[in-house]
Simulated assay, not measured.
Amino acid sequence: MEKLKYPIGRFEFGKAYSAAETQAHIQEISALPSKLFNVVNVLNEVQLETPYRPEGWTVRQTVHHVVDSHMNAYIRFKLALTEDNPAIKPYEEALWAELADGKGAPVEWSLQLLKYVHLRWVMLLNSLTDADWERTYFHPETKRVFPLREVAALYAWHSEHHYEHINQLCIKQGWK
Rank of each mutant, 00 (worst) to 15 (best):
E49M: 01
N72P: 07
L114Y: 11
L95T: 12
E164C: 03
L128Y: 12
F138P: 00
A105N: 13
V39S: 00
W121P: 02
F13D: 06
L81S: 04
H65Q: 01
H139Y: 13
L32C: 03
A16M: 06
E21L: 04
E28L: 09
E160Y: 13
A31Q: 05
V117Y: 13
K78F: 07
E55G: 00
M1L: 09
S30F: 03
E12G: 01
L95R: 10
Q27R: 13
A97V: 08
L79A: 08
L128R: 06
W121T: 04
R76M: 08
D130H: 06
G9I: 09
K176S: 11
L113T: 11
Y52W: 09
E108A: 11
D84V: 14
E55D: 15
V117P: 02
R135D: 05
G104N: 15
H118A: 02
N85K: 15
E160A: 03
E55M: 05
M1G: 14
F37L: 00
F138C: 02
S69G: 07
L114N: 03
K115A: 03
Y163W: 14
L95E: 15
C170P: 04
A19G: 03
K89R: 14
S69R: 04
V63S: 02
V122P: 09
P140M: 04
E83Q: 15
Y52M: 01
H139E: 07
L148Q: 10
P140E: 06
W109Y: 12
A97W: 07
T50W: 07
